[in-house]
Amino acid sequence: MSNFNNNFQIINKIEDKLAQAQSMVKVVSDNHNYKDEGLNKPFIEHCDTGNLIWAIGDLIEDAYKELLKIDFKGDDNNG
């Protein structure tokens, strides 16, 4: 069952990273569409939005790297 537990932990890490990225994408999208949100100007400066996009990219890259660690074969020889 160690592979099941290991895969479960990896999936939790992936879910966490993707949830963070999704939240940040929503903020960037709302900022970009600030008029639709009833605002007169963006609530985040352009340079700060760029930083959020970098962070989103890093989270997605980390999630992908975690995905590659999942043992889909069920090979229990590693643990």
Results as ranks from 00 to 15, higher is better:
39 L>K: 15
36 D>C: 00
69 K>R: 11
49 T>K: 08
33 N>F: 05
52 L>F: 07
26 K>C: 03
36 D>Y: 05
53 I>E: 09
14 I>Q: 10
49 T>Y: 10
8 F>Y: 11
7 N>R: 01
40 N>L: 14
47 C>H: 06
74 G>L: 03
4 F>A: 09
35 K>I: 05
40 N>G: 14
12 N>I: 08
75 D>V: 03
51 N>A: 08
53 I>Q: 07
30 D>P: 08
23 S>N: 14
6 N>M: 07
51 N>V: 12
28 V>T: 11
35 K>V: 10
10 I>S: 00
54 W>Q: 11
33 N>T: 06
12 N>E: 06
69 K>H: 02
38 G>Y: 03
12 N>G: 14
77 N>L: 06
63 A>I: 02
27 V>K: 15
43 F>S: 10
6 N>C: 09
6 N>W: 08
58 D>T: 14
38 G>D: 01
44 I>P: 00
62 D>S: 13
49 T>L: 04
61 E>R: 15
45 E>D: 10
45 E>G: 05
20 Q>L: 15
43 F>T: 10
5 N>F: 14
12 N>P: 02
37 E>S: 15
16 D>E: 14
66 E>I: 06
53 I>W: 03
74 G>D: 04
45 E>Q: 06
24 M>I: 12
34 Y>V: 00
63 A>P: 01
79 G>H: 05
62 D>G: 11
37 E>A: 11
48 D>N: 05
77 N>E: 10
73 K>G: 03
65 K>G: 01
2 S>D: 15
42 P>E: 02
48 D>K: 00
27 V>E: 11
20 Q>Y: 11
41 K>Q: 14
11 I>T: 12
1 M>A: 12
30 D>Y: 10
17 K>S: 07
33 N>E: 08
19 A>S: 10
30 D>F: 07
19 A>W: 05
1 M>C: 10
19 A>C: 11
14 I>T: 12
60 I>V: 15
14 I>R: 04
6 N>V: 12
35 K>A: 05
45 E>V: 01
6 N>Y: 09
24 M>A: 09
79 G>R: 09
33 N>L: 07
65 K>I: 01
22 Q>I: 00
23 S>K: 13
21 A>Q: 02
7 N>F: 07
27 V>Q: 15
74 G>K: 04
21 A>P: 00
40 N>K: 07
36 D>N: 07
52 L>G: 03
73 K>E: 09
26 K>I: 04
18 L>G: 07
7 N>I: 03
16 D>C: 08
58 D>N: 12
74 G>M: 07
20 Q>V: 11
28 V>S: 02
35 K>G: 00
74 G>I: 04
59 L>R: 00
73 K>D: 11
10 I>C: 02
7 N>S: 01
6 N>P: 04
23 S>I: 04
17 K>Q: 09
